[in-house]
């Protein structure tokens, strides 16, 4: 739920990093925290267990600049990835403006990715939010590992696409982040399919972290415009 504070001239938006346990959600936030200027971010808050597993959430507020005299402040949250913590995970999704799904590229984590994606759809649906019409991007993390699954395989499993929500969107739309690929196109059956933007990342080194953040933040602001 974005909140526009006209008195303080601020636009506040909430972005949630979702995904399976140990997939790199907290690492994304840690990298952002380490890289952005201290005067444009707040504290990184982690409600974690003693073994540094996220228990409730991590939280990092960042300012991404001014637009029309309003400061754009993004509140970044992660959820606990472990299946066990669904009640807390669902709470964090409340009033969300944009979602980043951080998938673990390792072949052996495919099932965990799928389970988490299904859980995201279910939790969003319970709030009455339509994920297919919201700012949503996928990050394929851990691309540096030797057992990382090929991107087409991950795309087929986690980003197979859906029918465009509006008929006007049923036209070939190039993927601005991958030359030669489309976000919306027609498959062999004649059906139109819309996919969400995806990014390859190695969160531990920071590769792809800001591309992901920029893409989702831009989608969130455009949804307000």
């Amino acid at each position: 739920m974005s909140m526009i504070n006209y008195a303080a001239r601020e636009i506040n938006c909430k972005i949630v990093y979702y995904g399976p346990g140990l997939g790199g959600k907290t690492t994304n936030l840690e990298h952002i925290y380490g890289k952005v200027k201290p005067d444009t971010r707040g504290k990184l808050i982690s409600l974690a267990t003693e073994t540094e597993r996220t228990l409730f959430f991590d939280f990092l507020p960042v300012d991404l600049g001014t637009i029309r005299g309003f400061n754009t402040r993004f509140h970044l949250y992660t959820v606990p990835g472990q299946v066990y913590y669904n009640a807390s995970r669902k709470l964090i999704l409340k009033n969300v403006d944009g979602i980043v799904f951080v998938a673990d590229s390792q072949v052996e984590r495919m099932e965990a990715n799928l389970e988490s994606m299904q859980n995201l759809y279910d939790n969003m649906a319970e709030y009455g939010y339509d994920l297919t019409r919201m700012p949503f991007v996928i990050q394929y993390n851990k691309r540096d590992l030797p057992n990382a699954a090929p991107i087409p395989e991950l795309q087929a499993a986690l980003n197979p696409g859906w029918e465009p929500a509006e008929a006007t969107k049923a036209r070939v739309t190039p993927d601005p982040y991958h030359a030669g690929q489309n976000l919306v196109d027609q498959i062999s059956t004649g059906q139109w399919v819309e996919r969400v933007p995806y990014f390859e990342a190695v969160a531990i080194t920071g590769e792809g972290v800001f591309d992901t953040l920029k893409a989702v933040s831009k989608l969130v602001l455009k949804a307000l415009a």
Binding site: M1, S2, M3, I4, N5, Y6, A7, D97, D130, R133
Partner: peptide
């Protein structure tokens, strides 16, 4: 485009 997620809200200086 409207966000089909949570409703946005705003308040002014007087509020």
């Amino acid at each position: 485009m409207t966000n089909p997620g949570a409703a946005s809200w705003s308040f002014d200086e007087e509020d």
